[in-house]
Design a protein around this nucleic acid. Structure first.
Lengths: 252, 252
DNA sequence: AGTGTTTATCGTCAGGAAGACGACTATGAT
DNA sequence: ATCATAGTCGTCTTCCTGACGATAAACACT
C-alpha cells in the first residue's frame, strides 16, 4: 500500500459553500462574482482552499465568516447564538471540474436568517443574494427578463444538491428555525416553509402541527405585530431537533 | 485567489468503503486487516487512493469491485443487474486522522446482498464480514467474549455514519431491496428491516405495508419455501424508489 | 365610531395509515 | 394425524392530516 506522496499527483482540496436564506418570500443563495479565469465575470458559490492545519468544518466556517460575518453554529454548541447552521453537503471530484488542476471540493450547506446585505469580503469582487429559482433556471431568464448565465464550474449542481438537502431536511428536523431570527412567530416560520418549498400551506393546520409537536417551539411570552394583523406569540426554537412525525411536504 | 499548486501542501485523496450486508439476521460490514503501519494488524474499512483520471464514484466502484467482485449499481443504470447500491456518504479530513500525511477520505456506502465469502483481493491481508454491533462496541467485547480492538483511523466514526445512513434511508426509500437477492419474499425483506434496525416487526402489518405501496414490489409469479412453512410469493423490486408514506421505524 | 383588511388562533369533521391482534392457509417434520 | 413454521387476509381502535368554518385582535381607512 504505497503512501509516498510523490507516487500520487497533488490534489487541491477546497470547500464551497451553499449559503441559503429566505428573502422576500424567496429562497436565496449567496453568490460571488469571479474576478479571474476561468469563468471570469460569472457568478459562483463562495469557497476557498482548505489550509494545511484546518479541519474541513473549520475551513467551511472560516469561509462562511469571511463572506458573511456569520459564526458557524456548531451542532455541539449549547444555545442559540446568532450563528448559522452549517453542515457538510457532499464532495465533488470530477477530474475535469476545474480546467487548471485536480480540485476536489467538499461542499457545505449553511442556513442563515435574513441578513442586511452581503458584505463583499476577501478576494471576491462582489457578492449578492440571488433567488435559487433564477440561479437554477438552466439557460433561462431571470425575473427581469435578462438572460441568466449559469454558475461557474459545477456549482449549479452543487447548489441544486444543497437546495434539495434543505428542502428535505426541514421536513423531519427543526432546521427551518435556522432561517428565522432568534425570536419568531408561527406565521414567520410558516413563510419559511412556504419559501423553501415554494408552496402554500394552510395556516391553521400548520399552526396546529408546530405548536402540537413537543419541544419544537418554546413560547417566550412576548408578542409582536411586525407582520400586521392580530398580535402573534413569539417563540424560540426548542430543544427538539427531530420532528416525528415529520412535516409533510404537499404533493406536487 | 491563488491557484499555484506549490502554494498549498499536497493533499492525498482516498475513498473508503462502508460495505454493508445482512448475514444471519445481523447487519455486517466488510473489514480488511491492515498489513502495515500505522494500525498494523488492526481491522479497517477497505479503501484506497483516487487515481489521477478517476472520478470519486469511479474510484469507489473500482475499490468495491476489487474487494468484493461486486459491480456498482449506478443509479442511472436501467434494471437490476446483480450490482450493489453505491452512494457517497461523507468526507473526512481531520488534519491528524492519518499520522503520516494529510489524507482526505471520501467515504462511500455500499449495500449488497449476502455474499458467499469475502474474497481477499488486492493488497489486503484478509477480509471478513463482521457484525456492526461488534465493530462499534467501543472497547467492548465481541460475541465470543474476546476484547475487540477498535477500527483503525477514524473508521469507527465512518462506519457509524454509514450505518446510520442505511438505517434512516430504508425508511423512506426502497433501498432495503439492495440487501436482497433479485427475487425475494416479503418475509425475507422483513428480516432485512429487522436486522438493519435491530427490532422486531409485526409480519402482518409489514406485509400490508409493502404490498400496499404501489410500485414497491412486483410479483414474479413464482413461490418458494426456502424459509420453511407455507410457500411465499416471490417479488422483484419495483420501480418506485421513494416510499411515501415512509416505513416507520418503531420507537425505542 | 364604524367598517374593512390582515393575520392569528381555536374547533370540527371525514379519510387514511398504523399498531395490536385474531383467524385461516399451506407447507415440512415427527 | 399432529405439530411447528411461515405466510396472508381481516378487524378494530387510535392518531394524524387536509379541508375549512368561526372567532379574535390589531391597523387603515372613512
Amino acid at each position: 500500500m504505497p503512501y509516498d506522496p510523490s507516487d500520487y499527483p497533488p490534489f487541491a482540496v477546497t470547500v464551497d459553500l451553499v449559503v441559503l436564506t429566505v428573502r422576500r418570500h424567496a429562497l436565496c443563495a449567496l453568490t460571488v462574482r469571479r474576478g479571474e479565469q476561468p469563468f471570469q465575470g460569472r457568478w459562483a458559490l463562495p469557497g476557498g482552499f482548505v489550509r494545511p492545519d484546518e479541519d474541513l468544518a473549520q475551513a467551511a466556517a472560516r469561509e462562511l465568516s469571511e463572506e458573511t460575518g456569520l459564526t458557524a453554529h456548531d451542532p455541539s454548541a449549547p444555545a442559540q447564538d446568532n450563528g448559522a447552521h452549517l453542515e457538510q453537503l457532499a464532495t465533488y471530484g470530477d477530474p475535469k471540474r476545474d480546467p487548471r488542476m485536480r480540485v476536489v471540493s467538499v461542499a457545505h450547506l449553511a442556513l442563515a436568517p435574513d441578513l442586511p446585505a452581503p458584505r463583499p469580503g476577501g478576494d471576491a469582487n462582489s457578492a449578492r443574494w440571488a433567488p435559487v429559482e433564477e440561479l437554477l433556471a438552466q439557460g433561462g431568464y431571470g425575473r427581469d427578463g435578462e438572460p441568466v448565465a449559469p454558475l461557474a464550474f459545477d456549482h449549479a449542481q452543487i447548489l441544486a444538491d444543497g437546495v434539495e438537502r434543505a428542502r428535505s431536511k426541514i421536513e423531519y428536523s427543526s432546521l427551518a428555525t435556522a432561517f428565522c431570527p432568534p425570536e419568531f412567530t408561527v406565521g414567520e416560520l410558516r413563510r419559511v416553509y412556504e419559501a423553501v418549498w415554494a408552496v402554500a400551506l394552510d395556516p391553521r393546520n400548520f399552526h396546529r402541527k408546530v405548536t402540537g409537536t413537543p419541544g419544537f417551539l418554546v413560547p417566550t411570552g412576548g408578542t409582536t405585530t411586525r407582520q400586521g394583523g392580530r398580535p402573534a406569540q413569539l417563540f424560540r426554537a426548542g430543544g427538539a431537533t427531530l420532528l416525528n412525525p415529520p412535516m409533510l411536504r404537499p404533493e406536487v
